[in-house]
Design a protein around this nucleic acid. Structure first.
Length: 329
DNA sequence: AGGTCCCGCCACGGA
DNA sequence: TCCGTGGCGGGACCT
């Protein structure tokens, strides 16, 4: 196997240019230089090594959240440094921009503020979430927020975070539930789209939330809680810098079928927990390390509403009513 | 088998 | 017409 020796030198040395090189010219030159080298073998990197979370980690190594002052980011050169397509940079920067860590200055250029504004922004997000009545929407008692017109990835990221911020700490939310609340399918789209189209739209939004969650994990705002036996799908927990008031209970929002439990992951669920929603017709059984064995029967209502998300919210509401009526877990 | 999410196609809008 | 941006979903990979 041949070894490739890389010698660092200024671009002007490579190109013999003596004056300023524009970013576009810079990129073209870099491309030309790259073309002079043999094409590297297809990436052998593990899928996980290429995940958006890892990529965002690498990005934050270049541009730390707790850096000093504001710096300019060139998307193309950053993509080149990280060894990814520019398209992936948009995925990351759009979410970071939605968190006010960066601002789009001009084409290919962002201003990086890092986490300097994050805390105050999160407080603002919480207020916005309250104005949008997300907590009520989660319980089916308020309409879902209207669909955004632009920058849907960023708006979706903000609203996803709002869900955590308007709820008590330790609230666990899964992506299905989040999409169910955040994507308005009740208006025009519901009447014009077929059930299959609605389903595809929903799945697509879940995919976007996976992307968003990976970036939010990387910047330390949320954590994935998985590996326990309560839920088939992972749930997410807010761990961000803006601390909400401490709560005793863990609340789980999930519309997904919940597998019968025997044991909870001790690290993750040391406190009593609440499940607000589940569409499984099976009875659920909980045993937590510091709770006595407790049982929770979650059943779907006798009639099944036409749209599954109505059903989810209905079940969530039933559970909430039950809990409010003093039936604790 | 179903969940996760990388990858890149392509539409859109501005220059 | 070109280019930057970003919505979107196929399908590969993982558990």
């Amino acid at each position: 196997m041949s070894k490739l020796f890389i010698v660092r030198c200024a671009l002007t040395e490579v190109t013999n240019a003596s004056s300023y090189v524009s970013p576009t010219a810079n990129l073209k030159l870099l491309t030309n230089v790259a073309l002079q080298y043999p094409t590297p073998p297809p990436s052998t990197a593990h899928r996980k090594e290429k995940s958006l979370q890892i990529l965002c980690d690498k990005f934050l190594n270049l541009y730390p959240l707790h850096g000093n002052g504001t710096v300019e980011i060139q998307l193309d050169s950053t993509a080149a440094r990280l060894g990814v397509e520019k398209r992936r940079m948009y995925d990351i920067i759009n979410i970071l921009e939605a968190m006010q860590c960066a601002v789009h200055k001009r084409k290919n250029t962002y201003l990086w503020h890092g986490g300097a504004r994050l805390n105050s922004f999160l407080k603002m997000l919480k207020r916005q979430g309250e104005n949008l009545r997300l907590s009520e929407a989660l319980r089916g008692k308020a309409p879902k927020p209207p669909a955004p017109k632009h920058k849907t990835l960023g708006v979706l990221a903000q609203r996803f975070l709002m869900l955590f911020l308007v709820e008590p700490p330790n609230t666990l939310i899964n992506l299905e539930m989040a999409v169910g609340v955040l994507i308005d399918t009740s208006s025009k789209s519901k009447s014009t789209l077929s059930p299959e189209q609605l389903d595809r739209q929903h799945k697509s939004k879940v995919r976007r939330l996976y992307d968003i969650a990976n970036v939010l994990i990387s910047i330390g705002l949320i954590e994935k809680v998985s590996g326990n036996l309560i839920l088939k799908k992972p749930v997410f927990k807010y761990v961000g810098p803006y601390k909400i008031k401490k709560s005793e209970k863990i609340i789980v929002y999930t519309p997904s079928p919940i597998t019968p439990l025997s044991v909870l992951h001790t690290q993750q669920l040391l406190t009593p927990c609440q499940v607000y929603a589940g569409k499984s017709k099976r009875k659920l059984e909980f045993t937590t390390p510091n709770c006595n064995t407790e049982k929770l029967g979650v059943t779907t209502p006798p009639h099944t509403p036409s749209h599954k998300w109505d059903e989810i919210l209905l079940v969530a509401d039933m559970e909430l009513t039950r809990i409010n009526n003093g039936i604790t877990l």
